[in-house]
Amino acid sequence: MSDTLISVSHLTHEFAARRTMFGAPQATIRAVNDVSFDIARGETLALVGESGCGKTTTGRAILRLIEPTSGHVTFDGIDVLTLQREPLRRLRRRMQVVFQDPHTSLDPRMRVGRTVREGIEAHELAEGAEADARVARTLEEVGLRASDAAKLPHEFSGGQRQRIAIARALAVEPEFVVLDEAVSALDVTVQAQVLALLMQLQRDRGLTYLFIAHNLAVVERIATRVAVMYRGRIVEIAAAAALYSSPQHGYTKALLSAVPVPDPRVKKKRIVWDGN
């Protein structure tokens, strides 16, 4: 496929579960086990699974925020996992991340403007008044005010903080953003607004998303394709419409049936997945 932006193949990451007294791993857990997928330019791949399934580790390994044990990741033809420090740093302008909890993902001591400006300076995209203008523009693009740049994170609500985190990611004009449970910690009304913002930004900027989530209902609207992860493996990957209408794997079915229906008149049949 010519328009593939990200390609992940046989990605595996092991954690040391126990270590010897000299620090050598004695027992390992495969958090990510032979995971492969492609993401086409402009699409949203939703990576869905429950806690501990390895979805966050996968996202971080792609960005090389952790060093995976084995496997390959290419971004626009560049081999991400073998890059030296400086080329990797430069590549990070093109791939960004938004974390789950906006209360911990913003430096509490740093003013919002400086947070958003950090990437602009790191990549020398603009300086002085031009950088200020760019910060202001980005803040407005995510639905905040330019004057918010002078404030500290604690002056904002959770939803607004998540918008700041999105502004920080967008300020360097990336092509690809990992949204690591980016709306999971938000109240439903705020969640809907932030989801709408993310979709708007994707249309405006032609962004490619890896949307990591634990709730299939949340990502249905935004996902082009969905990959379902269970115990470190992708058990099913399909176009969103197909996956939601006719799930193939037992775990996907269980996950879909577990989403509570916000309607007391509907009683859904629960499907239990026994782990095989």
């Binding site: 809907a192 249905e220 939601y244 509907v266």
Partner: peptide, 13 residues
Amino acid sequence: AELLRAVPRLTAD
């Protein structure tokens, strides 16, 4: 009503 509209739900439901 606003809260209910915002609740994420599966199309199938």
